[in-house]
Simulated assay, not measured.
Amino acid sequence: MWGLGKKRTKLGKFLDKHGRTQQELAKAAGVNKETVSKACSDPDYSPTVKTLSKLMKALRKLDSNVKAEDFFDI
């Protein structure tokens, strides 16, 4: 099971549900894996506009209906 025993944000739970790793998202989005790790575990994390755009573009390949508001308080 993905994410077993870890604190997970909505983004982390989304990746777990879709069977994807943080490293896969980082590569697809073109962002640092530490950035994705923080986004998946820190509920207070707020990405920059540029990072958010990259993440959302990659996430929409998994589910075309996702919105930034689904994962971050913006």
Rank of each mutant, 00 (worst) to 15 (best):
A26R: 07
N32F: 07
D42F: 04
M56C: 11
R60L: 01
Q23S: 12
E34K: 11
N65S: 15
G30F: 03
V31R: 12
G30W: 04
D70G: 08
V49E: 08
A29K: 05
A39D: 09
F71C: 06
S37F: 05
M56N: 10
D63I: 08
M56H: 13
S37V: 15
P47L: 07
L59H: 04
F71K: 05
L52P: 09
Y45G: 03
L52M: 04
L59R: 02
K27Y: 09
A68D: 01
V31A: 13
K50F: 13
K61F: 02
T35N: 13
Q22V: 12
A26M: 12
K57C: 05
E34S: 10
T35I: 11
A28C: 07
K67G: 05
K57W: 05
A26I: 06
K38I: 15
D63R: 12
A29E: 11
T48R: 02
D73K: 09
T35F: 06
L59K: 03
G30H: 12
T35H: 09
V66H: 10
S53Q: 12
A58V: 01
L55S: 08
V31N: 10
L59F: 01
L25E: 05
R60D: 04
T35E: 14
A29F: 10
R60V: 06
R60Q: 12
Q22K: 15
N65T: 15
G30E: 04
G30K: 00
P43T: 15
L59P: 02
S64T: 07
E24M: 01
D42H: 06
V31G: 09
K38P: 02
D42P: 06
R60H: 03
L62C: 02
P43R: 11
V49P: 04
V49N: 04
K54W: 04
K61H: 04
K33Y: 00
T51Q: 03
G30A: 06
D70A: 06
Q22D: 07
T51R: 02
C40N: 09
N32S: 13
A28L: 02
L52V: 00
T48F: 01
V36H: 07
L55G: 01
